[in-house]
Design a protein around this nucleic acid. Structure first.
Lengths: 334, 334
DNA sequence: CTGAAAGCGCTTACAG
DNA sequence: CTGAAAGCGCTTACAG
């Protein structure tokens, strides 16, 4: 390129980056020549030289296909995206490579990582530390000296179960997410573990234990919620379903609707998350609100500050709150 | 690093990339030293050297926040993501930079671009060509010699309106998407233009024109669909609402439900897209299905083939089909 | 199996 | 205002 315009490489660079350090005439000549031969500065080379990419990585615990199917992530990415929009960052979605989040890290050219849903640390944290790239864990079990953002899952679950107990429900079913094979080895972890702990808390106050409630563990899709609910109703005379995510609650409502069971007259249903759709559902869903978009925003904010070298509070716990709508009511005969 | 291990730079590189070209002992020594001093090969430098990033860019027409709020894009990205998962690519979401898709291009270090919803080409195409980076336009008005993927919007719109006309509906309202200020200058373009053209086709066959139907143009959110429908019902005695997107149809149903209007007894409602949620809605939504995920998959497939230098068919038009469900029925008294 | 050298393309002090 | 040089970190023929 420099040759084509008959100038030095620096002149070319100045033409593109520092117009003031070069005469207008030369600049025009260079730009014209560039246009002529179709020259354009290489993005990667610029990034390498600048030592920054203007891009935030989102390290995801599942395949892109699964993530994009999940309204929870849509909302989380909306929040993170808001900050990126503002600050001129792009967002690199990085799913596991050959089942491993760790293996995906070296292929992401980004200025920082938002690490989503890391339940068992297989070295991801130390790999990130080794790279000296800023990062923040979202919804993981907090670790000493590792920046993280989470929500009060336990408190939320406690509150919603208490709400049902106060309404007189005693025959409860918990529609839970299948923790996968790891559970056997390590027990419940992450948000699921905390939510279950919250349920146990609430039950204890009523002199109950998990043995007193029905438990179904299924993958986290609407159809799974639907199927599990049908199975549950066939087995048990229950008066309330505590779904550990709104999506599962949607599926439960589908099943109840189809079977002609009145909600909340015969059976109450509660969710967890408060997705946008939950308020559109009929009956409108009683659920635990977590500020998903805020979580995304907070994560991106933290990261961008860290990238700029500003110090930030390393741990954040966002609150949850019970949103009582129309899908929960007094237990029949209460 | 090389110094720390007491070997040459190449030895280090071999240790990481070509284990077989180096003795196991040396390799172990190097890896140990690397671990010791926390060395890890720089991602950008590797990419620059390799001339590839293993990443696909998605050039988006709106802010990340708006994109992630839109179930249409969630589904599209799911499809594209599926292919990326399979091929080990990451996905870089690239929203406009300072309102411009063109300006965003130089900051995306990717092997190829999926260009979404480019309605008026402001030089994006020639910039992409200049960079000699593979790309494919999605849902744009097709251009000569530019790879593109689209769906038969016109045919779909024609079919759904014909469906309503056959059911005896004559008092129609079209719930359309606001084309923004560009419309005045250039007329309707892209998917919206094609859908409107399809409506005109169908009306013509019944001896009608756009002047015979009510038209509301609103932003593409559920709430906008809701509000517009309330306004429409206040003004007009209509028997059918043709929404140009499912999301708008959802909003219309919300309004109808709230006003106690029976669907489809008093008013029929149709959508466009066939989002997953449309089949869950009550009454289930009659709509035009476009294979959104397939579109995403096709785009990513095309791109990855192009990156690998395989030739591909440069234009693809996916079909649409009318899905008749429960939200459309005979016009009252027909 | 190893090391010196060139090169992936760029940017930015530095001296003229 | 311009040009030769060093450097951002890596990888890969090539000769030993």
């Amino acid at each position: 390129m420099a040759a084509a315009a008959g100038v030095s490489r620096s002149a070319v660079s100045f033409a593109f980056n520092s117009p003031h350090r070069i005469s207008t005439a030369t600049r025009d000549r260079i730009l014209a020549a560039a246009h002529e031969i179709g020259y354009v500065p290489n993005t990667l080379a610029r990034m390498l030289q600048a030592g920054q990419t203007q891009s935030l990585g989102v390290l995801l615990p599942q395949s892109l296909a699964k993530i994009m199917e999940n309204p929870y992530y849509a909302r989380f990415l909306m929040g993170a995206g808001q900050v990126c929009d503002q600050e001129g960052f792009t967002l690199l979605l990085t799913p596991p490579l050959r089942e491993s989040m760790l293996k995906a890290i070296p292929y992401a050219a980004v200025d920082g990582f938002i690490v989503c849903g890391l339940e068992i640390d297989q070295g991801e944290v130390s790999e990130l530390e080794r790279r000296r790239v800023p990062f923040v864990l979202v919804d993981s079990d907090p670790q000493e000296n590792v920046p993280s953002i989470g929500v009060d899952d336990r408190g939320g679950a406690r509150e919603v179960v208490r709400h049902l107990l106060e309404l007189g429900h005693r025959r409860l079913a918990v529609l839970s997410i299948d923790p996968g094979p790891e559970k056997a080895v390590r027990g419940y972890r992450g948000p699921l573990g905390r939510r279950l702990a919250g349920i146990v808390d609430a039950l204890a106050q009523a002199g109950m234990t998990m043995a007193d409630v029905a438990l179904a563990e299924v993958p986290a899709t609407r159809t799974d919620g639907y199927r599990a609910t049908r199975a549950l109703l066939a087995d048990t005379a229950l008066t309330a379903i505590v779904a550990l995510s709104d999506i599962l609650a949607f599926g439960a409502m589908d099943a109840l609707h189809e079977l002609g069971v009145d909600v909340p007259g015969q059976v109450s249903v509660t969710g967890f998350d408060d997705l946008t759709e939950s308020a559109w559902l009929r009956p409108r869903l009683t659920t635990v609100r977590q500020a998903i978009a805020t979580k995304g925003r907070t994560a991106a904010d933290f990261l961008i500050s860290a990238i700029r070298g500003e110090d930030q509070h390393p741990h954040q716990l966002l609150s949850t709150s019970l949103i009582v709508r129309d899908s929960s009511g007094p237990a029949p005969g209460h």
